[in-house]
Design a protein around this nucleic acid. Structure first.
Lengths: 339, 339
DNA sequence: AGGTTTGGCGCAACCGATTGCGCTGGCCCC
DNA sequence: GGGGCCAGCGCAATCGGTTGCGCCAAACCT
């Protein structure tokens, strides 16, 4: 039982393939009665055009790729990516673009474009090498659409969707200073990751600007467990930091869990501040720097669609902002420093 | 600047397309020197086979579809789907199958298969109509691979990956009975959704079996806000239920938030029990019925891959289990009934 | 030395749909 | 009544790879 093709319809109706093709696409070149007949037989026989054949002649697949350069486990454990995905999907869906998804530790960024499997690509800028950037740039010149979420380590002509981390970080520091903190510790992301370095630098500058001392910097791996370990390490150090800043919420969650196990409390024993403002953060009362993840994803997809359609799209500007919650509250009144 | 094709390579080398094709696929029919030459030129010129053309002759796209029949917002707001996706992706990735993703309120389940856009499909059984099932069954007879996560309303010959809800529900009821509860309320999923009805029935039976009274059943929409609303409604009723059961964790989270606003506490004022055991549940101390979401996704994907490869795969059996945490603890000692 | 095998490659059909162009028949017009 | 116009449709090339089969030459056989 083969799938029915244009040819089959044509033979049954005694007309040419081309006629059937045009009729189904409501070409006025074909007479109304013929169009109706074709349409009817197509419906009855359950005809559906073959996507590959169509892609071949159209020179486009109608699909947009989304590549997340980490293991599935890592990606889907972090609600940040869910928010990103949500934003991407919520634009892709009405635009009629299915998403081709890949979560792989060592992704081949360009291949999907090179194979014409996708018309456009959304990738995380943070983990792109210079070479990968160049390959993508070349592909864009050949007509592919690419948007990066997060700035890559090297400069690029690719469309980069990013948000300014400074406002939120600055507000957080101001909040800390105002509530009486003087010494803080930072649990940054992976030491070798440029995006983590940039974020750490932003913290450093803002802390200095507000007269706060950065007591210690440790590096986590951006996972829940990594955050827990970092917290245990900080706790065992028994240092003077009264607030711990985390590279992302997931690590902060891990830290909260670790504190919990040790009968430490936030904010009584130490203030905790995350980054991203993922959904559970509000539930847990985690103070954090809000990042408009949904909007970033949506913007990336919007940009890709605009590139493909050839329409203009003025890039949006996005900023972070600090969201004070329970884990950084009331330090002045409750006092207390961990250690 | 066009993309380089087999033809281009062939012309540059002065050989036939077919020779290039075979050489690149390491066909022994082609001499080693020729293979080497072809290979070299292909690398230099950055040749990549066109996916559509390949799919056309292979009569397969090498892609597997994942269709989630709800809005992107709904899907990605619920960590349950992240876990599912994680499971699916973690099998798809090593198997070399990219995922085509769709989150749409009114998905066309079969189209991707009919258009040969995907070789296999993973869908949520819970929202499939009888007609949709029949269409999918027909497609499976034509060689497509389909796996459903969650049982559909009608019986089907399709592969259904599901887990037994009863053990976890039974354990939860036993736990409630043991800790002194006698009257409970249930916030079930959408009233018209068969899967929600089935789960509600399971609760009913287990509650009766353990001598607990089901005081009231309300229906939520499986969202955070829906759970919050349901909780407010239950609270305002001021009834005698000392424990509230929720159709999923997300609604339970909403309820916790609503309780928080009203200075109600769990478990002191009312015990809260969720369903799914998504990641934040552990962080929030939400008692819940654990569902092996990751495994269900992985099993579905494994099944699809096995169907496509023609290998045998013995279906795994999955069960739920109750995870007692803070929100259902210590009722006997702290007493107290909301209202 | 002549016939046969065989390794190496080209020809052409095919996958299924799209599209430029050309052909046909009916009608209108002068 | 014959030429021209146009609506309606078919032919065939094309997209980029894959593959069965056939062809040629070198090498082998007796």
């Amino acid at each position: 039982m083969r799938k029915v093709t244009l040819q089959d319809l044509a033979e049954q109706l005694g007309v040419a393939r081309s006629t059937v093709s045009r009729a189904l696409r409501d070409d006025l070149q074909i007479s109304a009665p013929t169009r109706a007949k074709v349409r009817r037989l197509a419906d009855e026989s359950g005809y559906h055009p073959n996507a590959a054949a169509r892609a071949l002649t159209h020179r486009s697949s109608g699909v947009i790729g989304l590549v997340l350069p980490r293991s599935a486990r890592f990606v889907f454990a972090n609600p940040y990516f869910s928010d990103l995905l949500d934003g991407v999907a919520s634009v892709a869906e009405p635009a009629g673009f299915p998403l081709l998804l890949s979560a792989s530790r060592r992704p081949d960024y360009a291949r999907w474009l090179q194979e014409a499997r996708v018309d456009g690509l959304i990738a995380l800028g943070s983990s792109l090498s210079n070479h990968e950037l160049e390959v993508l740039e070349r592909l864009v010149k050949q007509g592919s659409a690419v948007a990066l979420i997060g700035a890559p380590a090297h400069s690029t002509s690719l469309r980069v969707v990013t948000c300014d981390e400074h406002p939120g970080i600055d507000q957080a520091c101001e909040h800390l200073a105002r509530t009486g903190h003087t010494r803080v510790a930072l649990v940054a992301g992976p030491a070798r990751a440029p995006y983590a370095q940039a974020r750490a630098r932003a913290w450093r500058e803002a802390l200095a600007h507000h007269g706060l001392t950065l007591d210690k910097v440790v590096h986590g791996d951006d996972t829940f467990e990594g955050g827990a370990e970092a917290a245990r390490a900080l706790r065992d150090r028994g240092d003077q930091a009264s607030a711990w800043l985390f590279g992302n919420d997931l690590m902060a969650f891990g830290a909260l869990r670790a504190l919990d196990e040790a009968e430490f409390r936030a904010p009584e024993d130490v203030a905790i501040i995350g980054f991203d403002d993922v959904m559970p953060a509000a539930l847990l009362g985690l103070s954090t720097v809000h990042q408009p993840s949904h909007e970033l994803g949506a913007e990336a997809m919007t940009s890709v669609v605009a590139q493909l359609r050839g329409t203009v799209h003025t890039d949006g500007r996005y900023v972070t902002h600090f969201v004070p919650r329970r884990t950084s509250a009331a330090f002045l009144t409750s006092g207390g420093v961990g250690g």
